[in-house]
Design a protein around this nucleic acid. Sequence first.
DNA 1: ATGAAAGCGCTAACAA
DNA 2: TTGTTAGCGCTTTCAT
Lengths: 316, 316
Amino acid sequence: MANINEIAKQAGVSVSTVSRVLNNHPYVSEDKRAAVQKVIDELDYTPNRAAIDLIRRETRTIGVIMPYNNNQAFDQLLHGILNMSIEQDYSVTVLPTKYNKDKEISYLNMLKNKQLDGIIITSRSNDWESIIPFTKYGMIVACEYTDHPEIGCSYLDRYSSYLDVFQLLKEKGHTTVAFTTARGLESKSTQQTIAAYKNVFGELRPELHISDCYSMEDGSNAAKKLLSMNPRPTAVYANGDEVAGGFYQYALSIQLKVPDDLAIIGQENQPIGIGLGLSTVDHQLVKVGEQAFNLIISKSREKQKIPYRIIHRLSI
Amino acid sequence: MANINEIAKQAGVSVSTVSRVLNNHPYVSEDKRAAVQKVIDELDYTPNRAAIDLIRRETRTIGVIMPYNNNQAFDQLLHGILNMSIEQDYSVTVLPTKYNKDKEISYLNMLKNKQLDGIIITSRSNDWESIIPFTKYGMIVACEYTDHPEIGCSYLDRYSSYLDVFQLLKEKGHTTVAFTTARGLESKSTQQTIAAYKNVFGELRPELHISDCYSMEDGSNAAKKLLSMNPRPTAVYANGDEVAGGFYQYALSIQLKVPDDLAIIGQENQPIGIGLGLSTVDHQLVKVGEQAFNLIISKSREKQKIPYRIIHRLSI
DNA sequence: ATGAAAGCGCTAACAA
DNA sequence: TTGTTAGCGCTTTCAT
């Protein structure tokens, strides 16, 4: 395809003038501008983005590190990020890690080679010490809280949220309450859940915590295990509405009534929870994503807490 | 950050030699190679990607046009695409359109300005005539069938699949069967559903088709409408397992038994369907995505049909 | 208001 | 095996 020299030649002007009309600079006479535009249209010319990126030292592209894309929570985050990227005319590149440390680092290197202006980390497997050196090359924003001043944060206060829910359950008279998590102890959010639990109920009997829950099916399996205990839990806090849905389904299948026999509360206000009428705590992940994007492009390293809200339906 | 000239100077070699070690070219003596590598490590140097893209005329990045990211079906496609992109060391950029025609065209322009090597269209609002001119600038692959030879296709044979399901339902003795779709008549897949329906059942009473169904809640609402008809449908083919789940939920809530009073079959083998034991037709969207990606990077304009499979559970 | 020219950081053809 | 050099397509001083 034609380049800027070609346009300049055919329009009978210099490349600088062409560049000026391309970038809407002032101080271009109307006739020259028109002449240039005419040739641009005729030749169906578009400036080469790589050349512009090279000279401008920016790509207007940001990357999103996420373990999986086929997961409701990460999907909500991504959705928020995409919302803002459209408004701000940025591109976003998805960087799936499956929690592979090396992969994660290789993605961070895209900052170093100027392929990306910034990276949003929705979940990570490397520790901050390995990540922070890359802030030298571009903005890094996390969707979790961290003290490190180099990292901007758009986060939800999981601990408070978990505390709230467990307290609510306790107030309703539940003494044996179970909960599920996605990852195990290597995950900060699992650790926070456990801490909140202990804060409210004193101690945690290990069998009341089931990890590796992602789908409705996982929820059903967890319910099966939990509800065969004696005494069995009277309430469960699931790490997502799909998992909560699995609990609901299994409970019904063994003639337990929700919430009388089993109280259920999920997370993230997902479609299935709406359909099933499950109470949930909405961590507003879409907003978390939107805010993360805002931090990136405003080059801010602020720590921004996004409020959660408990949505009361009929399952607790 | 340092550039290739800096490395060359400090290593006491020419830039070509540096370039050669960077690209693992043969004909570099071991000592020079070592010297260069040493400086590269010391200076923590990484080649600038924009410069490489500029000269190579490729970005190793492909774009994925999709209406929404927060949708199970598109998510499966994206998942497949990401699977292959990791293997092939490509980046993928998400291009959300919300079915906005202009936005869609602006994304296609990223091919023209060399920002993207190729684009996968998972769903579109522009007609092919507007899209095809862009094949001049890069590969375009669609996740639907089209005759146009310029467009590679990784597609599912929706018509056959719909035909199969309706036939199955008919064989089971159902005469009044309803179905749901996402979009209305502007969508080819809706048109195909209707055509298959008419092929099997002769005519379609308009009230048996409900569009704009995306979530479980939409499914419940559709069920409410459908099941209050007289005579009411005895089977429903939902355009997704979440929608099917909504039907299931509503049917149970009014004491209808599945499948005796209402047979339900969904699509895409989603977690909720597994949890609820709903029969479904799995269009293998992950594979469709993977194949689309393969077509793009092998620069093939083939038409590849991905087989579907009906998964029999207990809801029909 | 316009143009000449010097890069941005890299690759590759050519020469040695 | 190595170096010189001419670009890739653009932006941006600096003159004029």
